[in-house]
């Protein structure tokens, strides 16, 4: 394995959980709901994935459990902001706190237990291609899912009727409602989709990235995923590039250190964050473009008049 190949593999692994969580949150936000609880759903997915993999001995069932529990957990949030029309910012934060607390309680039994790793699945023929094969066709299933989801979400949002409905709900819930779209139902589904994706991202952490359970193992990645959605101005393929860019900057600073570059490591560690701000400023300067893509009702509650 060449060094470039190895580095790219590392970047892919670091970027996959970010991508999974961000693509789910993108759909949620496109429907006009801002869920700041990604971190909480992610950590629930991580413990659920780990626990079910341990119980069944099968990491695939663990992955599935991560997605399902992530979705169920997001219903706490959904019920509050959609049915009871509570403030989305605050409710999302509550979800994060609750998720960190509950996962810690649930995980006490799994401390110091080696995890079961989700093994890579080689795709016949394609994985034989030099260089690209091992990178893109000899990966764990969550990598394939993450790429598949980006394509599927992009197709869904911009090429299907249901996607159009979802965007309509996000852009103007009143007119969508008047047109007979069940705004609340659409949003419930979008929230649950976001929860399932965040759960998958968590399962990636505890079954692929570092196959073990440790408290707070999401370590702020949920927040980065949220940042990526804005950074991508709500476009699926930009989320893809954003996640990989963020992963790459993070890995590059480690390589710079190992090569012995004499810059304080704190400055190198801060690079990904500074880079995000700079790129965001560059992207956002085009006001028109941002306005087109930003879901206009993002963060605003909706009560159907009867």
């Amino acid at each position: 394995m060449g060094i470039l190949e190895a580095v790219l593999l590392t970047i892919i692994t670091a970027a996959t959980p970010l991508l999974l969580a961000a693509i789910g949150e993108l759909v949620t936000e496109r429907s006009g709901v801002l869920n700041l609880g990604v971190e909480g759903m992610m950590i629930i997915g991580a413990i659920a994935g780990f626990a079910f993999a341990q119980m069944t001995g099968n990491p695939y069932l663990g992955t599935l459990a991560g997605a399902i529990l992530g979705a169920l957990f997001s219903l706490f949030f959904g019920f509050l902001v959609l049915t009871l029309v509570t403030n989305q910012y605050a409710t999302g934060l509550a979800l994060t706190i609750l998720g960190l607390g509950l996962s810690g309680l649930w995980g006490e039994a799994y401390i110091g237990v080696p995890g079961i790793k989700l093994q890579p699945v080689a795709i016949p023929l394609l994985s034989e291609i030099p260089f690209f094969g091992p990178l893109f066709f000899k990966q764990d299933i969550l990598f394939y899912i993450s790429i598949g989801l980006v394509c599927a979400v992009s197709y869904f949002l911009f090429r299907t009727n249901a996607g159009l409905k979802l965007r309509a709900v996000g852009d103007n819930h009143h007119s969508a409602h008047a047109l007979g779209v069940n705004v609340i139902a659409v949003r419930y589904m979008a929230v649950m989709f976001g929860g399932a994706c965040a759960g998958l991202a968590g399962a990636h952490l505890s079954l692929v990235y570092t196959p073990q359970w440790v408290e707070n193992m999401s370590a702020g990645r949920g927040w980065i995923a949220l940042a990526l959605v804005v950074f991508a101005s709500w476009r699926p393929y930009r989320v893809l590039s954003g996640a990989y860019l963020f992963g790459a900057v993070g890995i590059a600073q480690l390589h710079a250190q190992a090569l012995g570059i004499g810059i304080p490591s704190q400055f190198l560690s801060a690079l990904p964050y500074i880079a995000t701000v700079v790129v965001l400023v560059l992207i956002s300067r085009n006001r028109r473009l941002t306005l087109i893509n930003t879901p206009a009702t993002l963060g605003k509650g909706f009560v159907p008049d009867r």
């Binding site: 060094i3 190895a6 580095v7 593999l9 590392t10 692994t13 670091a14 952490l205 990235y209 570092t210 073990q212 440790v214 193992m217 370590a219 990645r221 993070g250 890995i251 480690l254 390589h255 250190q257 190992a258 090569l259 012995g260 490591s265 704190q266 560690s269």
Partner: peptide, 25 residues
């Protein structure tokens, strides 16, 4: 010896990335 400062006592993900980086080098 090649050294990477992870700037953390505890972050399984970041430590894993550092380990990969060092192996790659």
């Amino acid at each position: 010896v090649k050294i990477v400062w992870a700037n953390t006592w505890f972050d399984p993900g970041k430590e894993s990335d550092a380990a990969k980086t060092l192996i790659d080098q």
